[in-house]
Amino acid sequence: MHGQMSVDTPVGVAAGVVWDVYRGLEVGRLVDELLGDVIGKVQVVEGDGGVGTVVKLTFPPGTPGVGYMKEKITKVDDDNRVKETEVFEGGYIALGFDLHRIRLEVIEKDAKSSIIRSSIEYEVNDELAEIASSITTKQFEMMAEVIGKYLSEKSTATA
């Protein structure tokens, strides 16, 4: 079974500013700071934020399933503002998924706004279809909204 889902989150910040955060390790730092109690704690295991970087996300207490996931950055495309990661340990992989890929794309709307498109692609055995129905983009939508608001307030304060 192969599946994919995505969500577009509009933010009132220029695409270049959003991409500066999403392309590397800053996104993890902001998740830690602004959403650590909701999404989890982010720890860089190895790397500098480029392709090959390994990040561990430890979920908040009470989160169902395995308490963490490790993902590797597999693509950083500055021209198209696309970043992809693949979970290789914990998370849905521990539940039996063959693939769990996350794609984050920053799309320019105009000079002062953009869209953060968050996508999940997965492959899983048909017997695990019930677990696949629990996959959601909600955490990425929340992350985009909170980071977008943070960047918007930051740019207003420095203007």
Rank of each mutant, 00 (worst) to 15 (best):
V45F: 08
G52W: 02
S134F: 15
E71C: 04
F140P: 03
R117M: 09
F140C: 09
L34H: 11
E46Y: 01
I115R: 01
R81W: 03
G65R: 12
V106Y: 10
P61A: 13
M143H: 04
I73A: 07
A14S: 14
V51L: 04
E121F: 12
V38Y: 10
D48C: 05
D78K: 07
V76K: 07
D8G: 00
V27Y: 10
H100P: 00
Q139P: 07
R23Y: 05
Y68V: 06
K72I: 11
E89Q: 12
E127F: 10
Y122M: 07
V124S: 05
F140W: 13
E86P: 02
R103Q: 14
T9L: 03
M1S: 10
T74C: 06
G91W: 10
S119Y: 03
T9Y: 04
I73Y: 03
Q139L: 14
T9S: 05
A15W: 05
E141H: 11
K83W: 02
V82G: 07
S134Q: 15
E145P: 00
V146W: 02
V38A: 15
S6H: 13
V42L: 11
D20L: 00
H2T: 11
A14H: 05
R81V: 00
I39L: 15
T136M: 06
G36L: 09
F59D: 06
N125K: 15
R29D: 11
N80I: 01
A144S: 15
E121A: 14
G3C: 02
E71M: 07
V51K: 03
L99T: 15
R81C: 11
R103W: 00
S114E: 09
M5Y: 02
I39M: 12
G65K: 12
V82P: 00
G96K: 07
M1D: 01
L34V: 12
D37Q: 14
I147Q: 02
G50P: 07
G91V: 10
R117E: 02
L25I: 03
I116E: 10
V45A: 02
L25Y: 05
M1V: 08
G40C: 11
V17R: 13
T136N: 11
P10E: 03
T9R: 04
M143Q: 15
S113N: 12
V44L: 08
E141D: 14
V82W: 01
E89H: 06
T58L: 09
A14D: 12
V11T: 03
T156C: 01
I93A: 07
Q4D: 07
V106C: 13
S6F: 12
W19E: 03
A129N: 13
V38M: 13
S152M: 12
I93G: 10
V18D: 04
G36R: 09
M143L: 15
A157E: 06
L128G: 07
G62W: 02
A14T: 03
M142P: 00
R81G: 01
G28Q: 12
I120D: 10
V17G: 02
E153A: 08
K109T: 15
I93S: 09
V87N: 02
T53S: 10
R29C: 01
G65Q: 09
V66W: 04
G67L: 05
A111C: 00
